[in-house]
Each structure stands twice: as C-alpha cells, then as structure tokens.
Computed example of a mutant assay.
Amino acid sequence: MDTTEAQSVSERVLQVLVTVARHGRPIAAREIAAQTSLPLSTVYRHLVPLKKWGLVQEHAHEALYEPGPVGVQLAWGFDHNSHLVTQAREEIDALVQRTGETVGLLVAANGQVVCLDMHESEQSLRCSFAKGRAHPLVHGASAKALLSFLPQTTRDNLIGRQLAGQPVAQERLIAQIEEIRKQRYAVSESEVDFGVWGVSAPVFAAKERLEGTITLMAPAVRVAQRHEELIRLTVAAAERISNRLQYF
C-alpha cells in the first residue's frame, strides 16, 4: 500500500468515526454507509479497528454503533487541556451571572457548528444546543458568527453546499455576513429553536485567527426589552476572551 492509498484509508476510517460521533444516538452500519457514501462492506471493515481501540462500541442490545469508552478519555482531556475552553470558562461564567441567561462556547468543525461547552442559567430554556452536539453552519447566530469569519473560500464552499439550489437564501446569507463582519456579532430568533433569541460574538487568537464564538441564548419573550444590553455584554466578554487567548 503506497502513502496516498494509506492516507485514503485513514481518512475513511476517520469519516466513519466522525459519523458515529456526530449522530447523537446509536447508528446502524447501513446508515453510516448512506451518510459517508462508502460501501457497507468498507464500513464494517473500518469499524473493526475502531472497536478494537475503544473509539466505537456496539450497542448492548441492538446491531447499532455508538462512541466507545476512549471517547470519554478524549472528552475529559479536551475539557481539562483545551486552551480555548480554559481561557473562556471564567468569562462565560461571569456572563451567565451578569445576564441570568445561558451561554455556550461553540466552534466550526467539518462544516458544522459544534458546542464545546454550555453554561446554563437557573432560568429555564428549551434549546437543542448541548455540549458535543452539532448543527449546520448556516442557521442561527452561532453558525453565522463563525461562518462570517472563516476564510472566504471555505465560507463560499460551505454556503454553496449547504444551501445548494437556494440562490435567494444564499444571497440573503451573504448580505447578513457582510453586516456581521462589520458589527462583530450576529443575532437570530427562532432560526434553530422556535422562540429562542440568541446573540453570538466571535473569539479570536493572535492575528485575527478565528477560534470560536460565545453565544447567549434566551427565550425571546423574556429578553425582548434587553437586546442592546445583552449584545453589549456578550461582545465585551468575547473581546476579553480574545485578549486572554493572545497573551496567555
């Protein structure tokens, strides 16, 4: 097997692993094959080493696959060692205390917005965002705040792929991106979860390298008179996190 072929095999194994991780619940091999466009026999072959190394396991009572125990170790290590998570945690906690609302830390990965951390307030909020969960990178304040500061080629490819055949939606999103880049935050209401308002501000490391975004989420009816205040506090918290990332 030459180097190029070996790399291709490795990428297919990782494709299977990522599909299992993203799914959010146990998944059948046929569904993995459908989502990855790999032959079913290839999927089964790649599941063997993933199970051996504890990255994937078979569901206890069904012929389904789910993340394995090594995933817990990876998650623990990420929580305790990620520079972004550790530098953002204090500011996010403070933002939750100041506003009384829920705040998440999210990043762009593989064409999706992924929630790395979620700090919930004592007030109720029904929201589909949760730690480890992913959503498309074109809907909602978090996605748009991230999308707006990705490299232009990456951004254009994502918009073209995720909004294929929707020229009006593409034009609308591109116009929104221009505004978000100017004001350095994005807002949305009911785009991901009905009745939920959100504001998201990007976080940068040195040389304006996008690291992620912090997003404040709340029921729209509860914060209808507080938009300006919540935007200001969220943007300020994001700027402080960016400063920490650049100097620590």
Rank of each mutant, 00 (worst) to 15 (best):
M1S: 14
T4K: 13
T4Y: 10
T4Q: 15
A6R: 15
A6H: 12
Q7D: 10
V9M: 05
S10I: 12
R12I: 11
V13M: 14
L17T: 00
T19L: 06
V20T: 01
A21M: 12
H23G: 00
H23R: 10
A28E: 13
A29Q: 03
R30H: 13
R30N: 14
E31M: 06
I32T: 02
I32Q: 02
A33E: 00
A34T: 07
A34E: 13
T36D: 08
L38W: 10
P39F: 02
T42V: 14
T42R: 09
V43H: 00
Y44M: 02
R45A: 15
H46F: 09
P49G: 06
K51C: 11
K52E: 15
G54E: 11
L55H: 10
L55S: 02
V56H: 02
Q57F: 12
H61T: 15
E62M: 11
E62S: 08
A63E: 15
E66P: 07
V70L: 10
A75M: 07
F78Q: 14
F78R: 15
D79N: 11
H80T: 12
L84H: 04
L84A: 01
T86I: 13
T86N: 13
Q87M: 12
Q87S: 13
R89G: 06
E91G: 07
D93I: 08
Q97I: 13
Q97M: 11
E101D: 08
E101R: 14
T102V: 05
V103L: 02
V103C: 08
L106G: 05
V107T: 08
A108Y: 10
V113N: 06
V113H: 03
V113W: 04
V114R: 05
V114H: 05
L116S: 04
S121A: 15
R126M: 03
F129I: 15
A130D: 12
H135Y: 07
P136D: 15
L137Q: 09
G140F: 07
S142G: 15
K144G: 04
A145V: 05
L146H: 05
L150N: 01
D156V: 03
Q166H: 10
P167R: 00
V168G: 04
A169T: 09
R172F: 06
R172C: 04
I177A: 04
I177H: 01
I177Y: 04
E178Q: 13
E179H: 13
R181Y: 04
Q183Y: 03
V187M: 09
S190T: 02
S190V: 01
E191N: 08
V192E: 05
D193A: 00
D193V: 03
G195L: 07
W197R: 01
V199I: 00
V199D: 02
S200W: 04
P202L: 05
F204L: 01
A206Y: 03
A206H: 04
E208S: 09
E208K: 08
E208F: 06
E208P: 01
R209W: 05
L210F: 07
L210Q: 02
L210C: 03
T213N: 04
T215A: 08
A218E: 08
A220Y: 00
A224P: 08
R226S: 14
H227N: 12
E228K: 15
L230N: 03
L230S: 00
V235S: 11
V235R: 10
A238V: 02
E239C: 13
S242H: 01
N243H: 09
Q246M: 13
Q246V: 04
